[in-house]
Amino acid sequence: MRRLMDAEQPLLRAHGLSMWAYTVLTSLAERPATSQLVLAKAIGYDKTRLIALLDELEHDGLIVRERDPADRRAQTVRLTPAGEARHAAAKADIRKMENELLAGLPRDEQRTLRTLLTKLAHPE
C-alpha cells in the first residue's frame, strides 16, 4: 500500500492535488453534496483542519460550499464541473499507474489485491 501511495504522489502533484485533496474529491464524487462534518468523518480527517483544505479547493474552483437549507449552521460541499474533471483525470492517471504496477499479476489476483487494499483503507 505504501508503494502505491508513493507512486501516486507525483501523479497527484501533476494535477495540482495533495493526497488529502484527492481524498476529498473522491469522497465527494461518491457522495455528492455532503456536509463538512460528514465529509470529515467519511475521510477520517480532523474537522478543524478540513476547513483550510476546503478553502484551497474552493479557491481553485474544484468545490463549492453552500448553506444547508435544513440546518443553517451547516454547509454542504459538492464538486464543481472543474472538480469533477480534475478528479477524473487524476483517477485515470492513478489507475494507469496501478495497472502498470500490477501487470505481472494475473487479473484475478489484481482484483483480489485491489479489493483487499480498499478494505484496509476503508474499514467499516
Rank of each mutant, 00 (worst) to 15 (best):
M1N: 06
R2H: 11
R3N: 09
L4A: 04
D6A: 08
Q9W: 09
Q9E: 10
Q9L: 12
P10I: 00
L11Q: 03
L12P: 03
R13G: 00
A14R: 15
H15K: 12
G16C: 11
L17F: 04
S18W: 02
W20S: 09
W20C: 01
L25M: 07
T26S: 14
S27R: 12
S27V: 04
A29F: 07
E30G: 03
R31F: 11
P32G: 01
T34N: 06
S35L: 08
Q36F: 02
Q36S: 09
L50S: 02
L57M: 10
H59K: 15
G61F: 09
G61Y: 09
I63F: 10
V64W: 10
V64M: 11
E66H: 08
P69V: 03
R72M: 10
T80C: 09
P81E: 13
A82I: 02
G83S: 05
E84L: 12
R86I: 11
A88I: 06
A88M: 05
A88P: 13
A90R: 06
D93R: 12
R95W: 00
E100C: 01
E100N: 08
E100V: 04
L101M: 15
L102C: 02
G104F: 10
P106L: 06
E109Q: 14
Q110G: 00
Q110D: 00
T112Y: 14
L113V: 01
R114I: 01
R114K: 15
L117W: 14
L117G: 00
L117P: 06
L117M: 14
T118F: 14
K119W: 11
A121G: 11
P123C: 08
P123L: 08
